[in-house]
Each structure stands twice: as structure tokens, then as C-alpha cells.
Design a protein around this nucleic acid. Structure first.
Length: 426
RNA sequence: GUGAGCGUAGUUCAAUCGGUUAGAGCACUGGACUGUGGCUCCAGAUGUUGGGGGUUCGAGUCCCCUCGCUCACCCCA
């Protein structure tokens, strides 16, 4: 039944998984607070132009991966493929340049890219995005990298690889680009077809081609580091020194590129070996020319985005803790129809007192209610029948030990809380 | 956009060389046990074999198309 299934490349996060996601978001939120980043909620769609100018109209993302449509007012609208452009747009639109700089914000939400789905890649996927806008100092870059490291440390991710590079700035990149183009031009016949295309549009991209032939050619390609201008070199040195000071290990990789003019200086990614071929769990860098590209004044910025789907995937693979799973503390059981009314009141009273309580909603027999109580994972069953009604009591059964105890109604909450504290967390 | 593998019940899988009415475990519902879950036993419900077309006396099985899933290329978080 095609009409009964979700569109290709999207997925439902169901109860068995959603509590794990909630845990990840809680950790993100807390980490953001400790680093002084404020949460913002930005729109899921924007003017198409924001992305074609902000991301670059020669990128694959903009050329063929965007969900773009005309709305009823004939405006070209695009479901956001990433969050950075919106962040900078919001910064400019709300004149955040008048605030104390940098402005540090984060957001979380779904992103959309029309791509062929595969492991760790969906058409709707979730990212958490941190941006530090308005400071050009390398310490802003370092803080961004540090947040992502601390976030993953708190989540318990292991065996991550941090890869960093500097892609230069509008001062030094053109000359590097020229040297690179000249170099590849002379070895054209060794390049694959896609790289021949890249040669004209974006020669930096050839550096991370995975084909053996191209890889071999890139071995002797001009080094980015030799081409960095003084400012970029100094910036990069401070970033590296600071990471050393923080005890963070990283690998330099001159193949890591962001070929567009708005991306400047620091570029980094954090990779995990548990993800298959979509191995980046986080990626980011500096974009000092993005604000201008989307029509604003010159505002430097740096940030990262981390993929929530992939984070959860790695955490599951590495059996990381997601805190405690939601659990039912009390399941109230009615022995007859008259007791159902009392059970309803009982459950209501327990909930008001902060106890996780449930009851049968399907009109089941007592036996089936008991079964439901244990399949829901309840710790206690509170049984209510004719004799309990008469005595103003409730029969409390510990479902793990099968011990039973009749407790009078006024004492019930205190008794239950007492029994629960031994197993309760947080 | 390109390539490969796979689609049978909610789920995991079975069904001989193409042969009758497509089965089983788990899960679900009910009962044995009329006020006590887990264990056991019994019973029940659930399928357009992803969809369409073709070959054949006969198709879950073979062929074509299509859709979907998975992985990889590509790209990225």
C-alpha cells in the first residue's frame, strides 16, 4: 500500500527510540547552556535565494538536492537543507550586530535534502546547529570545536576522529586556486570525468576525490599551507595551539575542503568509524563571507552542525547510555465495573502526586489487566475490588517479587513513594 | 542521477524441479484459572506472497515493467 507509507527517505522516530532522542537533546541543551549559547527556533523553509546565495549555486546541495516549490503567492520557497544560512539571516534581519559580539546561538530541527537514501542519510534528517556570529578571532573557532568535542564526550561517543584544515580566505585562496588549476591542468589525462568538471568550477574539490587515479595525482598537488596568507596562517596556528592546550587530538587533512568563497580559514569534521560511508557525525568551520553573500554587511562567523540521526546510530552501536528509559511505576487494576470509577480517581490522584500511573483503557478482564501491568513494565499493581472499596484500602502488589500488601488510601502515596525511591532515578 | 542485493502475516523466517486450500516461532486477543501478571497448555485473528503485465494446464517460485527497502557511488551532518 504505497499511500500507507511515508515518502521515500523519511522515517518515523517511534517510542522505542524517541526517548533516546530526547536524551540527546537534553544533553545538547545542557552543553549549550554551559558554553553560553542561546536556543533559537528558526523557520523550516526560507526564500530559495537565501540558500542559492548562501550555500553557493554550484554546489550539489543547491543544484539538485533542494526541496523547492512555489507557494500560493508565487514565491520560490525551499525547505532548509542546513541551518547556517538561516542563522546568519536571522542575525542580520534582527540587527544582532548591535548586541555584544559574538552572538552565540544554537538550534535543532529537521533539514531536508533530496538525495538517494542510504545508511545515515535521509531526505529529512535532524541536526543540532551551533553558530558564533560576529567574532573573527580564532578563539571563536576553538570554542566551536570545543563544544562539539564536549558534547560528544558527554554523550559517551568513542573513537572519534577530528580532522581539521584551513581553506584560506579571499586574500590567499585565489592564488592557491590558480596554482591548483595549473597543476591539474597539466595532468588532465589522469583525472576522472567528474574531476574534469571540478577543474573548471571548483578545483579544490578534486582534492577529496576518492578515485585512486585522482588520489595519486593529488599527492604532489600544491599544498594549501604554503599558500596561506600571513593572517590565515596565524589564525590556523592559534587554532591548532589552542586545541593542543585543551588536550584535543586531531589530524590535519589538506584534502578537507569547503570550496566556496564564503567559507574561510578553519574547516573541520568529526568522523566515526561506526557509520559506514556517511561517516561524519559533525562538520563545521568559519564563514566570514557568508553574511555578505546573502546581502548583509561583513560579519564573520563560525559554527558547526551535528547529525542527530547519526549520533544516535553511533551511540547505539557503542552501547552508550541514554539515561533511563521511561517506565510505568504503578498500574491500577479494577476488579469490577464499579471499581473502574475508583481506579480512575486513584490514578488521577497518584499522577497529581508525581507518580507515573496507568490503568486499563480497553475494558479488559482483571487477568488481562494484570498482564497489561507487567507488559507495560509497571513496578507495582494497585488492585481495587469490592473488599478494598469497603475497607478504604488498595492492594499493592510488587510485580517483581509478587509480594502483596493492603494499604489504606490516606497512606498510599507516601507508602508508594517510599517503595519507589529505592529504584527511582533522578 | 548511477550501480548492486533484497521484497512472503505485526515481526523473524519456511514453502522440494513450477504443482492442490501459502505454513511455523515470537508478538497480539481470548480461555484453562468466575479476585492476581511472568511459566505451561488450548483456541482465535491477521496475507491482494509490494503492485502490474507476461509465459504456462498451473506462478510465492520463471521473464518484463514499476514501486519500495538496503548498501555503495556521488554528496554531505
Amino acid at each position: 500500500m504505497a499511500e500507507m507509507s511515508a515518502p521515500k527517505g523519511v522515517r518515523d522516530i517511534l517510542p522505542e527510540e524517541s526517548w533516546k532522542w530526547a536524551y540527546v537533546f537534553r544533553v545538547v541543551q545542557e552543553t549549550a547552556r554551559h558554553f553560553g549559547y542561546s536556543e533559537v527556533h528558526l523557520p523550516i523553509f526560507e526564500h530559495t535565494e537565501l540558500f542559492s546565495r548562501g550555500i553557493g549555486d554550484t554546489t550539489d546541495v543547491v543544484e539538485k538536492e533542494m526541496y523547492t516549490f512555489l507557494d500560493k503567492g508565487d514565491r520560490s520557497i525551499t525547505l532548509r537543507p542546513e541551518a547556517t544560512a538561516s542563522m546568519v539571516r536571522a542575525y542580520l534581519e534582527h540587527r544582532m550586530g548591535t548586541m555584544s559580539q559574538p552572538v552565540k546561538m544554537w538550534c535543532a530541527g529537521p533539514m531536508f535534502r533530496y538525495e538517494r537514501p542510504q545508511k545515515g542519510r535521509y531526505r529529512q534528517f535532524w541536526q543540532v546547529d551551533f553558530e558564533s556570529i560576529g567574532a573573527s578571532s580564532p578563539y571563536a573557532d576553538v570554542e566551536i570545536i570545543a563544544i562539539s568535542l564536549e558534547l560528544f564526550r558527554r554523550l559517551g561517543l568513542r573513537r572519534l576522529e577530528v580532522v581539521i584544515n584551513s581553506v584560506g580566505c579571499p586574500e590567499c585562496r585565489p592564488s592557491y586556486r590558480k596554482r591548483l588549476t595549473d597543476y591539474f591542468e597539466s595532468r588532465k589525462d589522469h583525472l576522472c570525468e567528474t574531476c574534469l568538471g571540478r577543474l573548471e568550477r571548483n578545483p579544490l574539490r578534486i582534492l577529496d576525490c576518492k578515485r585512486d587515479g585522482c588520489k595519486a595525482v593529488t599527492e604532489d598537488a600544491p599544498d594549501v599551507y604554503d599558500s596561506l596568507c600571513g593572517e590565515c596562517r596565524e589564525h590556523f596556528d592559534v587554532v591548532k595551539d589552542s586545541l593542543d592546550a585543551l588536550g584535543a587530538s586531531y589530524r590535519l587533512d589538506k584534502r578537507l575542503v569547503r570550496g566556496l568563497d564564503y567559507y574561510t580559514k578553519t574547516a573541520y569534521e568529526i568522523l566515526s568509524g561506526e557509520l559506514g560511508s556517511q561517516n561524519a557525525v559533525c562538520g563545521g568551520g568559519r564563514y566570514d563571507n557568508l553574511a555578505e553573500a546573502i546581502g548583509g554587511s561583513h560579519v564573520p562567523g563560525v559554527g558547526f552542525a551535528a547529525g542527530v540521526d547519526r549520533i544516535v546510530m553511533v551511540m547505539e552501536q557503542q552501547e552508550c547510555s541514554f539515561g533511563s528509559a521511561p517506565s510505568v511505576e504503578v498500574f491500577a487494576v479494577a476488579l469490577d465495573d464499579i471499581s473502574r470509577r475508583n481506579v480512575l480517581q486513584l490514578v488521577d490522584m497518584l499522577r497529581r502526586n508525581g507518580i507515573v500511573a496507568e490503568m486499563d483503557l480497553a475494558g479488559k478482564s482483571m487477568k488481562a489487566q494484570m498482564k497489561a501491568a507487567s507488559s507495560r513494565g509497571a513496578q507495582f499493581a494497585c488492585i481495587l475490588g469490592e473488599s478494598e472499596r469497603a475497607g478504604g484500602t488498595v492492594m499493592v502488589k510488587d510485580l517483581a517479587t509478587a509480594e502483596q500488601q493492603e494499604i489504606s488510601l490516606p497512606l498510599l502515596v507516601a507508602e508508594l513513594k517510599n517503595k519507589l525511591t529505592s529504584t527511582r532515578k533522578g
